[in-house]
Design a protein around this nucleic acid. Structure first.
Lengths: 131, 131
DNA sequence: ACCTATTTGTCCGTATGTATG
DNA sequence: CCATACATACGGACAAATAGG
């Protein structure tokens, strides 16, 4: 799996793990449909608690990078037509904005601001903490 | 606080709690800047574990409905214009767009197009995403 | 249809760290 | 310095869905 956790870093363990896995998925070292180790298994091999691994897994699930299923484990998401799902979300949002009678310009402004100020979930643009 | 948890429901406790708090925030029973009970305190009064409350708090933080700060507790987010749920949806969408590495300009274009071509207004709030 | 092993989901408990006031 | 309160990490227990025999 080639992921190393460093207790001494200020970055939390679960975040180091999520970042490492995310990097592997993004650059293709882990490909769609591929199965990740069971949480307990990975936890043992890394010397951390299961909850720490699960927390990283849940993070990646929230980012739609992996899928989690009981009894089946964690699988790298196949992102075919990912933009299609995104388009659906766009329509949902615009629909709700209209319900709130929010002008188009206001929504665009919100989007722009969110782009500038929301570094949280992605991690794609964020380099892995090195050393 | 007027939130009741029902162990017998199939909905998880943390989700019931998050839903209850979310509803209170959305409809204004809890207003911006208002402080929520400390996690431990609320946990005791509800008869659940601290982690369960914190999990609900984290959920609401992800939705940008509350802010969490060490030593200060949980505070209902003050939103300067725009509905809270809408603001949360905006951040969710932008997060996802970033995950897809979709440039800001592209998302803005999608939004504008959706504004022009989406005629109807459902008026119905979407149910909470059940992960 | 049944049973069993696997694996995540949820919840509880405890301890320590750290920013805030 | 000290109390508060969230953040992280550890540990354990049971439930529930899945897959395979």
């Amino acid at each position: 799996m080639l992921i190393r956790l460093d207790q001494t870093l200020d970055a939390p363990l679960f975040e180091q793990l999520a970042s490492g896995l995310r990097a592997s998925i993004i650059d293709g070292r882990l490909s769609g449909g591929e199965r990740l180790p069971a949480a307990r298994e990975l936890a043992d091999s890394l010397g951390v608690n299961v909850h720490t691994v699960l927390r990283a897994y849940h993070r990646l699930r929230d980012e739609r990078l992996i899928e989690l299923h009981r009894g089946r484990g964690a699988v790298v998401a196949v992102r075919i037509g990912g933009h299609a799902a995104l388009a659906g979300a766009v329509y949902d949002l615009v629909d709700e904005a209209k319900n709130h009678e929010l002008p188009e310009a206001a929504l665009l402004a919100l989007i722009s601001e969110a782009y500038r100020s929301a570094p949280r979930a992605s991690g794609v643009l964020r380099p892995m903490p090195t050393r």
